[in-house]
């Protein structure tokens, strides 16, 4: 962690690179997200009992969070393989690559959230949010606490086995439908409601989105998130002892 200058500088450079040949640059993140939220809300708002305004914010918050969480899985599985030249020629601690990757995905997330906040300001729903919103901060801390071991472990495993990369595509496609982003969990009954509860993504999403929508998250959600995070650290510790030594040979 004390080498934060390193990963911050590198993450910032990589982000700039991604957009350096476009006129709008980083503004593309905001523009494309606003376009997406607008389109989705127009089409889907009729399906939920929320008002059109509320639904728009619901989607704007939910999808940004979902994208960020999924990006950690996708980036995590590539975190070491994309830095192979560095890993094979310097002895920087491997965690630097994880922090770099995490920091890089944080920026688009923050920019997408500004779209959601701008909408809240515009619709004047900020007043309703009140003190609940502060609970979004510990939720964000949990995201980061969970993302570090997740990326570390996934990075090691997928350096050795290509299968992870393939399975992630399959899972992402499924998760986007079984996670309450375009539909509301409270309104889903039977299998759909059960699936949503079994899906840890739901809980990660709700501890962050609920407070910003002026509601408390369920204690169940917090328990799941904390539980998953603890398991993730244990898992990463195990994977690290088993595989870390062999990493430079695999990539």
């Amino acid at each position: 962690m004390k080498r934060h200058h390193v990963w911050r500088a590198f993450a910032w450079d990589e982000t700039k690179l991604r957009y350096h040949r476009s006129v709008l640059g980083l503004f593309w993140i905001i523009a494309s997200y606003a376009l997406f939220v607008g389109g989705i809300s127009l089409f889907f708002s009729g399906f939920a009992s929320l008002s059109a305004q509320e639904f728009t914010i619901y989607v704007a918050l939910g999808y940004a969070t979902f994208t960020f969480l999924m990006a950690n899985i996708a980036d995590g599985s590539a975190v070491f393989s994309t830095s192979s030249a560095w890993i094979k020629s310097t002895n920087l601690p491997y965690s630097i690559y994880v922090f770099k990757s995490l920091f890089r995905s944080l920026l688009p997330f923050v920019m997408q959230l500004t779209v959601a906040f701008a909408l809240m300001l515009y619709f004047g729903t900020f007043a309703k949010v009140s003190w609940h919103a502060f609970m979004a901060l510990p939720a964000l801390v949990m995201f980061l606490l969970c993302a570090v071991p997740l990326q570390y472990a996934l990075g090691l495993i997928s350096a050795r086995y290509d299968d992870i990369q393939h399975s992630i595509n399959a899972i992402t496609r499924l998760l986007i439908f079984i996670t309450p982003i375009l539909w509301v969990r409270e309104e889903a009954h039977g299998t759909r409601g059960l699936l949503a509860d079994l899906n840890p993504m739901t809980h990660f999403l709700e501890i962050f989105r609920n407070p910003l929508m002026g509601m408390d998250a369920r204690p169940l959600s917090w328990m799941v998130v904390i539980g998953v995070t603890i398991l993730m650290w244990l898992f990463a510790g195990l994977i690290s002892t088993l595989m870390r030594q062999r990493l430079p040979f695999w990539i």
Binding site: V6, A9, F10, D13, L17, H20, K88, S89, T90
Partner: peptide, 26 residues
């Protein structure tokens, strides 16, 4: 300090000056 891979330590898209900074930080 190792110079084993010629392509390493340099970020191809960044300027020479920026690379001095990045490499130094690393």
């Amino acid at each position: 300090t190792s110079l084993i891979n010629i392509h390493l330590g340099l970020m191809p898209h960044a300027t020479g000056h920026r690379n001095i900074m990045l490499r130094g930080l690393a």
